[in-house]
Each structure stands twice: as C-alpha cells, then as structure tokens.
Design a protein around this nucleic acid. Sequence first.
DNA 1: CGAATCCATAGCCACATGGCTAAATATTAA
DNA 2: TTAATATTTAGCCATGTGGCTATGGATTCG
Lengths: 109, 109
Amino acid sequence: MDSISPLDHAFHALGNGTRRAIIRFLEKEEELPAGEIAGHFASAVPTISKHLKVLQAAGLVTVRKEGRIRYYALVPGGLAPARSWMERHQKLWSGNLDRLADYLDEQDI
Amino acid sequence: MDSISPLDHAFHALGNGTRRAIIRFLEKEEELPAGEIAGHFASAVPTISKHLKVLQAAGLVTVRKEGRIRYYALVPGGLAPARSWMERHQKLWSGNLDRLADYLDEQDI
DNA sequence: CGAATCCATAGCCACATGGCTAAATATTAA
DNA sequence: TTAATATTTAGCCATGTGGCTATGGATTCG
C-alpha cells in the first residue's frame, strides 16, 4: 500500500541504458512512431514497447494515437522533478544547506 | 558481459526512497557510523547495510573504517555525472540541441 | 469481407531487488 | 581469554525486471 514517489519512477526509468538511449533518440525529432523507435534497437519490438511504458509511467514520455500508429514524444518538463532534486542536493552536498531544501526534502519532493 | 554504465548505478541508487533518505541524513553531518544511520530507519540493520553498499557502488558514498566502526560520508562530486547527464538533456529537451551533447551522448557519458 | 500492418498484452524464463533472521567477522572491553 | 559490540555476509522469500515468442486488438488496404 506504500505509494511510490514519482521520483522513484523517474530515477528508475533513467537507470537503464536502453531507456536513456530511447530518450536521446526522441530528442532528435518532435515525435516518433513506436515502430521507428523499436527499429533502431537490437531488442525485440515488445521489449521496447515495455520500456516506452516505463518511460510513460515516469512522466517522461507521452503517446499520441493516430490511426494504428502510436507517436511517442518527450514530455517537456518531464525531467524537471528529478533534476531539481539533484540540483538541491548537489548544493547541500557541497556544504551550504538551507532550511528550504530541508523542508522540501521532508516530503521527498 | 555487457558492462553496465556508471550512470546506471547512480540513477538506480537514486531510484529508491530509502536510499534518498539516507543521502539526506548524511547531508546533515560530515560522516556517520553505519549504526547511527540504521537507527534512524524502521528497516532492519542488514537492510540498511545493503542500501549503503548500493550507494557505495554508485560512487555516492564512501566508508572510513575506524576500529569496529564504519563511518559513512557523501562523496563530494558523486552526484555530478548523473546531474550533468540531466543538465544536458534538460536543454535538448527544450529544443536547442548542439553537437557537443550529441557527441557526449554517443558514449552515454 | 479478408488480409495485412502497427503495436500492445500475455505468458514464460533467468536473474535482480528489498526485506527479513541467523551467523560470521572484526574489534574492543572485562 | 572470554564476552560484548559494530557491522557485514549468508540464506531465504516474495516480487520486480528485462528479455523473448506468441497472441490479440485496432486500423487500413485489396
């Protein structure tokens, strides 16, 4: 019943080389059909489909269905929560902790 | 035989709420004994010990052994590789891709 | 309608993960 | 030397993950 933080999903999604490669591939185009994404990787089509679903659950990617084609695209602010977590902690890491960051971290934001 | 990228380790380590909580706890002090870290969590001691090992493998944490006590501390630049990956992609995400980032990403740096 | 295309889902496998308790190791104290 | 303390390692269990093939649903083409 323990609800999992959105950060868990985001970091987990990024913790796989194939998924990061999919992200890089998507950055080059506005959007891409699932098949075209799958075609650029050695893995089987359903395997890539699964990865896309993980990226979607992490809020990093969206789908647009047009006929029988699914166009995948990056979510503009998708990386922001994970990135801001890192920003704040990069600072704390270096020694200058402040109360705002403490407060934010109590909620694991 | 596929060697796993350091980024995989870092992102994977961050993809768990307990481990992020350990990081937050470590930020408040220069270094802490394993027992004191474990004491602040509901999980059993060996469970926290395992998490510390994951953080260590990810290059986020170091140990210093003094007698029978292990002092854990954050690695100063430990977050940097993961953070810079996100920096670069946050930019690409927003639309302005440049060749340097492309080159860096070919090696998944 | 029937066949082809695009893609997801279902089901399987081997292995990883996060949790636990119990045992081992290393060091210090009695 | 024996006992206590700090921490890791060894096993065990349930569940998750990444990979595959085979099947199914939706859409388009002949």
